[in-house]
C-alpha cells in the first residue's frame, strides 16, 4: 500500500520544478543561424567527403591558432552555424557577418568587444557581405579585422 507522506510530496515537487526549470531555461541556448551564401560552390564547410569533414572552403582564411583564442572584434552576438562554425554579427558593423570555423568551447550569445569567442588549433575565417536580395557573399577580409579577432585588445 502506497501512502505519500510530507517529505515525499516535497521531494516530488522539487523534482518536478527542477525538471521544468532545467528543460525550459538555458540562457546560452542559441538557435542555429542559417544563411544563404551567394557563391553556390559544390563543396561547403560541414560537408563530408569519404568519411572526412570539410572544415573550410573557398573564401576562408586559414589561421594557425595553436590552441589560442579568437576574440570578438566588436560587441556583438555569436550564433552557432553549421558543424563547428559560428557566425558573429555586430550592430557596430552593419551589412557584414563573420564566419568562424574550427573553434572549440564556443562562447555563444552576446559578447563584448575583445571577449573570447572560442579557441582551437586552426581558425577558418570568412567575411560575408549582405546583398540586396538577402543573401551573403564572401569577400576578402581586411587585416584590421583579423588583428581584432586574434588579439584581445
Amino acid at each position: 500500500m502506497v501512502r505519500m507522506i510530507g517529505i515525499e510530496k516535497w521531494i516530488g515537487g522539487i523534482a518536478i520544478a527542477l525538471c521544468t526549470t532545467a528543460c525550459s531555461l538555458d540562457p546560452n541556448s542559441e538557435p542555429i543561424r542559417q544563411i544563404q551564401i551567394q557563391q553556390n560552390w559544390a563543396i561547403q564547410p560541414g560537408d563530408r567527403i569519404a568519411g572526412h569533414s570539410v572544415v573550410a572552403g573557398l573564401g576562408d582564411i586559414s589561421i594557425q591558432l595553436g590552441g589560442d583564442r579568437a576574440y570578438a572584434p566588436f560587441a556583438g552576438k555569436v550564433q552557432p552555424s553549421s558543424n563547428k562554425c559560428a557566425l558573429f554579427s555586430s550592430p557596430d558593423v552593419p551589412a557584414y557577418l563573420f564566419r568562424l570555423c574550427g573553434l572549440d568551447k564556443l562562447n555563444l550569445g552576446e559578447v563584448q568587444a575583445g571577449e573570447a569567442i572560442g579557441s582551437g588549433d586552426y581558425l577558418y575565417f570568412a567575411t560575408l557581405r549582405k546583398q540586396p536580395d538577402g543573401t551573403w557573399t564572401i569577400v576578402e577580409p581586411a587585416k584590421d579585422i583579423l588583428e581584432r579577432i586574434l588579439k584581445p585588445s
Binding site: 538555458d26 540562457p27 546560452n28 583564442r69 570578438a72 566588436f74 560587441a75 557596430d92 568551447k105 562562447n107 559578447v111 563584448q112 568587444a113 575583445g114 571577449e115 573570447a116 581584432r148 584581445p152 585588445s153
Partner: peptide, 22 residues
C-alpha cells in the same frame, strides 16, 4: 549553467573584454 561557468569563471582574465565600446 555549468558550461558558462567553466568557460568564463575558471579561465584567465584575458577572456574578458579589454576593448572599449565604440
Amino acid at each position: 549553467d555549468v558550461r558558462r561557468v567553466s568557460w568564463n569563471s575558471f579561465a584567465d582574465n584575458s577572456l574578458k573584454s579589454s576593448r572599449p565600446v565604440e
